Simulated scan of single mutants.
Amino acid sequence: MRKPLFVAMLTMAFVCIAGAAFAAEGIASVVATTSWAAAIGMGIAAGACGIGQGMGLKGACEGTARNPEAGGKITVTLILGLAFIESLSIYALVVALILLFANPLIGNVVGH
């Protein structure tokens, strides 16, 4: 029951934020909106990746505690998994930097 409620509340929050973003006018509001979008997106990505890495580390510690002989294989798998999770936050950083510095909307607004 908790998960559908969380998804519904998160969807409503995004809908409310999107309305305010689309109502903005002028170059200053476009820059401010993209700055906020980049900051919020990077914050969500970093937080979610941190939670994922913590859960992965928890599982690896529990697995090693249950079967110490498999510690080497668990460590290799853990490091590979952490690298994949961290790459997601790096992708979010790249998207945030594109929003901030190579935004096509800002070029179109300035050109007119």
Rank of each mutant, 00 (worst) to 15 (best):
R2A: 15
L5G: 05
M9G: 06
L10P: 01
A13Q: 09
C16S: 12
C16W: 10
A21C: 07
F22K: 10
E25N: 13
I27L: 15
S29H: 07
A32V: 07
T33Q: 03
T33K: 04
S35A: 13
I40L: 14
M42L: 15
G43Q: 06
G43H: 07
Q53P: 02
M55H: 02
K58V: 03
K58T: 13
G59D: 09
G59H: 11
A60I: 00
A60K: 00
E62D: 14
T64D: 00
R66V: 00
P68H: 02
E69S: 12
A70V: 00
G71L: 05
G72E: 10
T77H: 06
I79E: 01
I79V: 13
A83Q: 03
F84H: 02
I85A: 03
I85S: 02
S87E: 05
L88Y: 05
I90D: 05
I90N: 06
I90T: 09
A92Y: 02
V94E: 09
V94K: 10
V95S: 07
V95D: 05
A96N: 01
A96D: 02
L97C: 09
L99W: 04
L100W: 06
P104A: 06
L105H: 05
L105I: 15
G107R: 10
G107W: 15
G111T: 13
G111F: 11
G111E: 15
H112Q: 15
